[in-house]
Design a protein around this nucleic acid. Structure first.
Lengths: 227, 227
DNA sequence: TTCATGGTTCGATACTAATCGAAGCATAGA
DNA sequence: TCTATGCTTCGATTAGTATCGAACCATGAA
């Protein structure tokens, strides 16, 4: 009855519809202002403000002030991971907020999870990296192999600068629609960013979906086929 | 604002203190009756009954009737995984239910996570299995290697019967106290059961802690040292 | 059948917390 | 200084729901 950390408090924070909407919106990875989050959640600015204060005190969000704006973002990818887990449970129990529509199909295909690629495309990428021996589980953590480093470099990602950062390079993240892993961590973020730079894909501004161009899809397939 | 599954509903279910206590109690892996859960949660049988009905409808629990008792258990290890994740967040944000006491130390050392070994002992076991090449990440899923199958067999686990079951054999689970992975899945469960059979360890009936005997600890260390 | 026990349903109460209007701060720019 | 904008605080209202007492149902035992 009284052991371990207080789950109920954190879950209660996520358990309010307005706050859950805000968190879901932040899963897209972009930092959003208080007013943007208010409209995302469908509440006025006042109530949003009180919600955000609670989420902050619960350690679920980080804040960056810029001018007279306040940009909120998820505190860590651990938070994102828990949210994905909850989505998995909710999807499994069939309590969908909306019947699965056309947009839902796009989300299943490719979407952004916090800051990295998820959905069918994300899991295919991860699967390829592991199958081709570019990524390996070592010591309970994901590690890029020698060939993996080459691969990433050839793709145009500056590995050195990533490794100088504090963030974990490779981390796996459970995909709620595909039910297997995809790649998170700073490398996951960088790979997605590079695909956007290359013009392979862009983010749907209205949802978490990632829209591949026809060429982008071809190139992506070729990449996974091993050139 | 309206994409993906309904997180808020599931989180709201977990977010009530009484229900959270019940779920935490069930993390010990044993199925419990309604009255046991009521006393765990510190509420009367009536309110427990209504909570249990909600948790069932939310798909978080499974039920097995036996005589005039009803045994409740967590619906899946996915549920357990999410709960562990929430514990991690709650522990990180410093909202502990109780100040970390002596029992807390025991929990950190070894405890049961749903049905498998967690805590420092659990992560050490996992680390050894991977380091020694007994367990491998393949195709996004954990796989037992040839030597791994021998190892498990020598330890006295009947692998064939495990593989006949529907449950996933190997799965990794994030440890909230150690912040790395430990082994879940039916193999994780079987390994813990075998250790209990061997008299290496027993469960603290009053908490989730696993108490190793002096001999058990020695044997466990020897096992991880590679005999 | 009768009794005891485990669990559910119903109804009333009480409390928490979400919500928004209105007023108050703070920052940036003119 | 004044004004516009982004956000917070305060207060009052409202809605939801956790809670328990009491009565009810179901199962197993005598």
């Amino acid at each position: 009855m009284k052991e371990g950390p207080n789950i109920a408090y954190v879950a209660m924070l996520i358990g309010d519809p307005a706050r859950a909407n805000m968190l879901t919106a932040l899963m897209a990875g972009k930092a959003l202002t208080a007013s943007e989050l208010a409209s995302e959640a469908g509440v006025t600015l006042q109530t949003a403000s009180s919600h955000l204060a609670k989420l902050m005190s619960g350690g679920l969000l980080t804040l960056r002030k810029q001018g007279r704006h306040k940009y909120f973002a998820l505190a860590s990818d651990e938070v994102a991971k828990v949210l994905e887990g909850l989505m998995g449970l909710a999807a499994g129990s069939g309590h969908l907020r909306t019947r699965t529509g056309p947009r839902d199909a796009a989300l299943r295909k490719a979407r952004v999870c916090y800051d990295h690629l998820a959905g069918e495309a994300g899991t295919r990428l991860y699967r390829h990296l592991v199958d081709a021996g570019l990524l390996r589980h070592d010591d309970g953590a994901l590690q890029l192999t020698g060939p993996g480093r080459d691969f990433v470099g050839r793709f145009g990602v500056d590995l050195d600068s990533l490794e100088r950062g504090r963030a974990v390079l490779c981390r796996e993240c459970l995909d709620w629609s595909e039910r297997t892993s995809h790649l998170a961590g700073s490398l996951g973020r960088a790979l997605l960013a590079r695909m956007e730079d290359l013009g392979w894909a862009r983010r749907d501004p209205a949802s978490r979906a990632i829209l591949f161009s026809a060429r982008g899809e071809r190139e992506f397939d070729r990449l996974l086929a091993g050139e």
